[in-house]
Structure formats: structure tokens, C-alpha cells
């Protein structure tokens, strides 16, 4: 029988631990597919965070390094500086990358660190059971904002990719999502570009991906996809926020 679909060899056979309806699995698969398609798997070193993505060390078929909470990008910096010939990517959630690790994210962009950061934004701390994060929407109920995020007391969601795109050393910044096949294809395209930017040595590349967390959002998977589209997407600047010009790529 002709094989019409096979699992990418960028992923191991370890089953994902993610909750039903969580889109982390899609994001991992896209990342692994691009690593294989761009022939990067053998040179790739991934850095895993603390949080829901923390177990991805076992999912990616390449070498993986687990970092302390908020420090994935610092660890990735150390790996890349030690092995400039390697392809280095970090994975982080919104708590990891936008709260405790904000300084690391911005500083890597400032340095134009030649790594790729994949930032998975589901507007909540998932692993610890659904607490408010810097990207939680105003009014969104979480276990630490039980009356809804209060704008006066805790501010408004941080648009991290938009912030990163303001930094000169950031060569490529995209804000994408995975709620439909069309968006999934666009996300894969963004990852491909980000990886190419790193390979070309053009600077820091940052891909923010809006993702669902039906469990802590208290929704069905279908409701979660709809909420991502109708509530989250309007709140964050979407699309390619920064990309090198053709001339810059040539140089």
C-alpha cells in the first residue's frame, strides 16, 4: 500500500502528554517537520522550558537541553556561542518568555543572538493549573484572577512579539496562530523563514504562536479554537511584524 502520510522523523515515538484539544502538539509537529525539511535535525539543539512544553525534550528527535523557568533563551545563547555551527531553537510559553524570562527575551533580541525562539502564547500558566500570565486578556478568569483580569490592578496583555519587533537586533518576528489549516500552513511558513534567518546569520528570530488551553480555559476543544480566533487574535498584532528586506537577505 502506498503511504500517504508518515510521522516526521523529527519527532520521537514518545506520545505527547498534552490535554485533548491543546494545540501544542500541532506546533511541535510543525517545528519538527521544518527541522527535517530544512535538513537541520542533525545540527539542531533545542532548549526546553519549564511549563507545558517542559517535556518536549522527549518528543524532538534532536539533542535537547532543559532550562530553568524563564532561562531558555539564556541557555540557548550559551549553546549557540559554544557551537556556532549548530542550529539552536528555544521553546517557551507566555509565562516563561513574557514574565520571568522577559529580560532574557529582549536581551537576546538586542544582541541579535543567532537563535530562534518559539513563543507559545495561550494566555495562561497551563502547567501550574491555570494562573494569570502577562498575556491573559482583560476580564479573563484564571485561578489567580478569579474575577477576571483587572486592568487597573494588573494591566493589559503584553504583546511580546510587537515589543520584540521594535528591537533592532531582531531580524525576523512573526505572530501566527494554529486554529485552522490555513493558519497552520502560515505558521509553518513563519517557522521556515525564522529558521532560514538563523541559518543566514541575520540575527534573532522570534515566532509567537497563539495556542489553545481548553483545560484551564474551561472550554471544549472546539470552543477553545473559537475563543482563540474571536477573543485572542484581535488583541495581538498578527502577521509578519518584521522581516529582512530582500536586499538584506542578499547581503
Amino acid at each position: 500500500m502506498k503511504a500517504v502520510f508518515t510521522k516526521t522523523k523529527g519527532l520521537t515515538d514518545t506520545p505527547f502528554h498534552y490535554c485533548p484539544g491543546c494545540t501544542h502538539g500541532v506546533i511541535h509537529r510543525l517545528t519538527a517537520e521544518v527541522l527535517v525539511e530544512m535538513d537541520l535535525l542533525e545540527r539542531a539543539i533545542g532548549v526546553a522550558p519549564v511549563g507545558c512544553t517542559g517535556f518536549c525534550e522527549n518528543y524532538f528527535a534532536c539533542d535537547m537541553v532543559g532550562a530553568a523557568h524563564g532561562r531558555a533563551i539564556a541557555v540557548a545563547t550559551g549553546v549557540k556561542r559554544a557551537r556556532p555551527g549548530s542550529f539552536v531553537f528555544s521553546l517557551q510559553g507566555d509565562g516563561d518568555g513574557a514574565a520571568i524570562g522577559l529580560a532574557e527575551t529582549i536581551s537576546a533580541a538586542v544582541r541579535g543572538e543567532k537563535i530562534t525562539s518559539i513563543f507559545v502564547n495561550n494566555a495562561i500558566y497551563g502547567m501550574t493549573g491555570g494562573q494569570m500570565s502577562p498575556t491573559t486578556l482583560v476580564g479573563q478568569k484564571t485561578s489567580t484572577s478569579p474575577y477576571g483580569r483587572d486592568r487597573d490592578a494588573t494591566g493589559q496583555p503584553l504583546d511580546l512579539p510587537l515589543l520584540v519587533s521594535q528591537v533592532e537586533g531582531a531580524a525576523y518576528v512573526a505572530s501566527v496562530s494554529v486554529e485552522s489549516p490555513k493558519e497552520i500552513i502560515a505558521t509553518k511558513k513563519a517557522l521556515r523563514k525564522a529558521f532560514a534567518i538563523q541559518e543566514a546569520g541575520l540575527g534573532y528570530s522570534f515566532v509567537s504562536i497563539l495556542s489553545t488551553c481548553p483545560t484551564t480555559w474551561g472550554m471544549t476543544p472546539v470552543e477553545a479554537l473559537a475563543w482563540l480566533k474571536t477573543a485572542m487574535k484581535p488583541r495581538f498584532r498578527m502577521g509578519e511584524l518584521k522581516a529582512p528586506t530582500a536586499k538584506e537577505v542578499e547581503q
Binding site: 537541553v65 532550562a67 539564556a74 545563547t77 550559551g78 556561542r81 559554544a82 529580560a103
Partner: peptide, 13 residues
């Protein structure tokens, strides 16, 4: 905080 974690990364490599 970043420095020690960068050292962690370089040693891991």
C-alpha cells in the same frame, strides 16, 4: 541570572 544560565548552555554543549 542570565550569565549562569548561559554558562549552563555552553557546558551542556
Amino acid at each position: 541570572v542570565a550569565a549562569i544560565n548561559m554558562a549552563y548552555g555552553a557546558a551542556a554543549a
